[in-house]
């Protein structure tokens, strides 16, 4: 049997720690907990976890700061927890290297899905990349720059394809507006969310059955977009 993935949870609320420890242990993860930022950083350095779940509202230091400090030496996935209406903090944490976020209160299924995506993503980074991403009727070939829907080719503009390719190669993960704009349009256009809105709308019209209730290119309110592929 392979060793179970190790999750470090940094949160100052004992009830949350208790619940997460119980649930995650039940799901065959090895769980370590810390209730302060400094303690969390020390534990992370000592035990090299496979994934860190980090609450942004810590008593001793800013969660965004913890993110930045972790990123100085480790690439392990970080999932941040925060409350509603702190989109700014979520975006800041994501820009500082966090991989994903969850808004409290969250269902445990959501958390497990995020953990799975993060683990797969870091496995993909270290292993070989597949060039074909499938999502329902969609098949995206990143190497050959082709997209088919129900085996019929979908015509995309160059920018549309670049956008889709960036989303698809980060399937399951949230991508901030800024990071998408920088990647697809270049750093000079990082603030032009209007480009992104228009292109996402065009992509949805070409790819989704109902562009107003998308199933594959999801909006993360106030943060960015997430591409949902088949697992």
């Amino acid at each position: 049997m392979t060793t179970p993935p190790h999750i470090l949870v940094i949160d100052d609320e004992p009830q949350i720690l208790r619940a997460l420890r119980t649930i995650l242990t039940e799901k065959q993860f090895k769980v370590t907990t810390a209730s302060r930022g400094e303690e969390g950083l020390t534990l992370a350095a000592a035990s090299a976890p496979d994934i860190v779940i980090l609450d942004l509202g810590l008593p001793d230091m800013d969660g965004i700061e913890v993110c930045a400090r972790l990123r100085e030496w480790t690439e392990c996935p970080i999932i941040v927890l925060s409350v509603r209406d702190s989109e700014r903090d979520k975006v800041a944490a994501l820009d500082k290297g966090a991989d994903d976020y969850l808004t409290k209160p969250f269902g445990i299924e959501e958390l497990l899905a995020r953990v799975r995506v993060a683990l797969r993503h870091s496995a993909r980074l270290s292993g070989s990349q597949t060039s074909i991403v499938e999502a329902g009727p969609l098949k995206i070939d990143l190497a050959w720059h082709t997209v088919t829907r129900d085996d019929e080719e979908v015509k995309l503009t160059a920018t549309e394809f670049n956008l889709l390719a960036y989303l698809a190669s980060n399937r399951g993960r949230v991508l901030t507006h800024q990071s998408i704009l920088k990647q697809v349009w270049g750093p000079a256009d990082a603030d032009h969310t209007e480009y992104l809105r228009v292109y996402v709308r065009q992509l949805r019209k070409k790819l989704e059955a109902d562009p107003d209730q998308p199933r594959y290119i999801l909006t993360e309110p106030g943060v960015g977009y997430r591409f949902i592929a088949d697992e």
Binding site: H145, T146, E153, K155, L156, T157, A158, T159, E160, F161, H192, E194, Y195, V198, Y199
Partner: peptide, 11 residues
């Protein structure tokens, strides 16, 4: 908002 230039659809 800024307007975007139109783009041709590639294969």
């Amino acid at each position: 908002p800024r307007r975007l230039p139109a783009e041709p659809e590639d294969a």
